[in-house]
Write a protein that binds this DNA or RNA. Structure first.
Lengths: 246, 246
DNA sequence: CGTCCGATTGATACTCATCAATACCAGTGG
DNA sequence: CCACTGGTATTGATGAGTATCAATCGGACG
């Protein structure tokens, strides 16, 4: 069931062989990724093990159940993380954005599939390599563990949403949480980009595509948001926050 | 909003002051808890920091949002882990059983409330104390991280359940997952104990108490399960597994 | 025996899914 | 430039599944 992902990968160590502006030190997401806890010397050490990897829209970074051979830092773009039921029903567990770390559970097999929502840039490490570095650097492990705690928190938030919120609350809460995540990485704005399609949102919120569309239309008609191509503009954040019932 | 939990705690170090059969080495859950990765010498070190703590049914171990002053090993009994929406809607994130570790995210504040479903026995550590020990023992941190990965996996499973399964599938999947968890801790049996009430199950599965009750009755009438006081007997596991659509 | 609390069962209402048609938009080729 | 195509989003009509409301049951306990 593996499709040819046709990813493009530079040769290992590409970053530090004299190319300008490509090293980890200049990395766009250095300060918001796990790498932020590393000293410069450590960074170089890790850099020697890194592989730059890019994907196009729709390509699969890894599939649910596959042996987890690599871990990844997302540098640019967005991915969706999905689980499938045998009969095809799909749940989108979340979306990975720049600065996120994929594979932080360090398990034998990937528990989700990761697919690019658009052009994506990642920094790949062999799992063995990374595990070795981590064994030598407890503060890196600690940082990873903190991220895991954060992920667990998000997962709980999402469970609450899926189990106890109405369709409208789900959509509103999703828009606000996306805005918060963008804000944390610097891109603060009233206009929230939606790199995923309606079906992805639906599968994330436990709804159908039609219901998501209806709720967005309704919010638009109520002038709480403004639908724009590729995203939404949040017009009345206080009202949205009340609607989300968080 | 803090109720008097009225918990009973022995004086610190109670375990190793000559009392027989009370040390960590004899701990009932030693081999299935995080402590399983510790050598005997390390175990004694940790034991010096441990506090034995018991709760009665309904008592709160800690509340959502409170500063996370302690972490806990569950020795006996069961707790429910809940999150509340401002308007009172409740989501049960999961149930803690013997061998489980509470507070493994090591965050500033508890992200859930933990309430005893019956008599509960725990092993408490001050968060600072535990963090210190962990800083000195990377393999303990690694073990905790692995547990976090496992929790994350469970959380994803639950998201899939909440978002994409029908009421019947939810109830069946819940019964089977409980059986699996009991099996992992040794208590393998076709009779699955249900230490939680119907409302707890409902709040865990994103249903109402009535729907849970109806589904259980229906399964009983269909001779897939047998409702017994305090639990269920799984009569036709293969069929249940088909119904769960996992 | 009566009370209390949780569980079960029934009748009805409502939210959201389903089915279906249409609109929109980007790309492609005539 | 404009028709055609495929994919995605929107909108509408209807129905299924589950929530809600209400009554009854059943066991534990005083």
């Amino acid at each position: 069931m593996l499709v040819d992902t046709g990813t493009f990968e530079r040769s290992p160590h590409a970053c530090h062989h004299g190319r300008s502006g490509e090293g980890c030190a200049d990395c766009k997401v250095r300060l918001i990724s796990v790498c932020s806890v590393l000293a410069l010397a450590e960074l170089e050490e890790l850099e020697a093990l890194s592989h730059h990897l890019t994907l196009d829209k729709g390509q699969t970074l890894f599939g649910q159940g596959e042996p987890a051979g690599s871990v990844y830092n997302v540098i640019d773009g967005a991915l969706r993380l999905t689980r499938l039921l045998p009969d095809g029903r799909r749940q989108v567990m979340g979306f990975a954005l720049p600065g996120d770390f994929l594979g932080l559970a360090l398990q034998e097999r990937y528990s989700v599939s990761a697919e690019a929502l658009g052009p994506v840039e990642t920094c790949r490490f062999g799992r063995e390599d990374f595990a070795e570095v981590m064994a030598a650097k407890p503060h890196l492990l600690k940082s990873l563990h903190e991220r895991a705690g954060y992920e667990l928190n998000l997962a709980q938030e999402q469970m609450l949403l899926l189990g106890r919120r109405t369709a409208e609350e789900k959509v509103v809460a999703f828009l606000l949480s996306l805005r918060d995540r963008y804000a944390r990485t610097g891109h603060s704005s009233v206009t929230v980009e939606l790199p995923m399609g309606r079906q992805d949102m639906a599968d994330h919120l436990g709804l159908t595509i039609e219901t998501v569309s209806r709720m967005l239309s309704r919010l638009d008609r109520a002038h709480a948001i403004l639908l724009v191509p590729g995203g939404v503009r949040l017009l009345d954040v206080p009202r949205l926050e009340r609607m989300a019932a968080s």
